[in-house]
């Protein structure tokens, strides 16, 4: 495949996907929760832009709706909810450095290579460049998973979970020109409901064990006293 044969819009899809991958790395290394939410919102914005471009390219008008939905939910509503949540949990100034940052980043880079290697055998797709986007979106999913493993803060883990969903959405949009609108609506509202439920759970966790650090959850409270 030659990049020069593709139009500018197709090339910009690549740039957007690569930037989304970079934002996943930023999420992984970011210490401040507030900044994490901002970065998550930017990732959602890239996704919405990319969906709109795919819609314009492939003449799929229903993707415009899905782009609009992504924009409203992932750029405006969910980040706003998360911001309100951490304000009410008084975590605005919370900082959590990764234990072994360089190691985690290298693991992230290894995951990118791994997902490329996994997707490599799928050569029977119609367009080769779609396959490459799939491998990067798989990498975004795995980086979200890595974030949930490496972080101990519950809110950070939830952001990791949502960026995993971003990766799945990206794969769907790039590989199959989007899922049926019904499915997409369902997933979008699932994520929204998940965000609400997580909020409720945070308060319960904090009320019962007085912290949001998940390492504390492995100990029995009886033992301490």
């Amino acid at each position: 495949m030659n990049l020069a044969q593709l139009g500018l819009l197709e090339q910009s899809i690549f740039v957007l996907v690569a930037l989304a991958l970079f934002l996943s790395f930023v999420l992984l290394s970011q210490a401040r929760l507030t900044t994490m939410i901002h970065v998550f919102a930017w990732q959602g914005f890239l996704l919405a832009l990319l969906t709109a471009i795919v819609a314009a390219l492939g003449d799929n008008p229903h993707l415009y709706i899905s782009a609009l939905l992504t924009f409203l939910l992932k750029v405006l509503l969910i980040p706003a909810m998360l911001h309100r949540l951490i304000r009410r949990l008084e975590l605005e100034r919370h900082q959590e450095r990764l234990q072994k940052q360089a190691l985690v980043m290298m693991a992230g880079a290894a995951l990118v290579i791994f997902s490329y290697w996994v997707v490599l055998p799928i050569t029977h797709m119609e367009l080769a460049h779609i396959r490459n986007v799939v491998s990067l979106s798989l990498a975004i999913v795995q980086l979200g998973m890595l974030l949930m493993v490496a972080r101990r803060q519950v809110v950070a883990q939830v952001i990791g979970f949502m960026s995993m969903e971003n990766g799945l959405f990206l794969a769907a949009v790039a590989a199959t020109a989007g899922m049926p609108l019904v499915v997409e609506l369902g997933i979008a509202f699932d994520v929204l409901v998940a965000a609400v439920l997580f909020g409720v759970f945070f308060f319960h966790i904090r009320d019962s064990i007085d912290t949001l650090d998940v390492d504390q959850l492995t100990r029995l409270s009886e033992e301490e006293r």
Binding site: L3, A18, N132
Partner: peptide, 18 residues
């Protein structure tokens, strides 16, 4: 360094292709 590495990876994955 990470940016450089990502640049190289995205070159291999996105631009070289098949």
């Amino acid at each position: 360094f990470l940016l450089g590495l990502l640049g190289m990876l995205s070159h291999v994955i996105l631009e070289v292709g098949v």
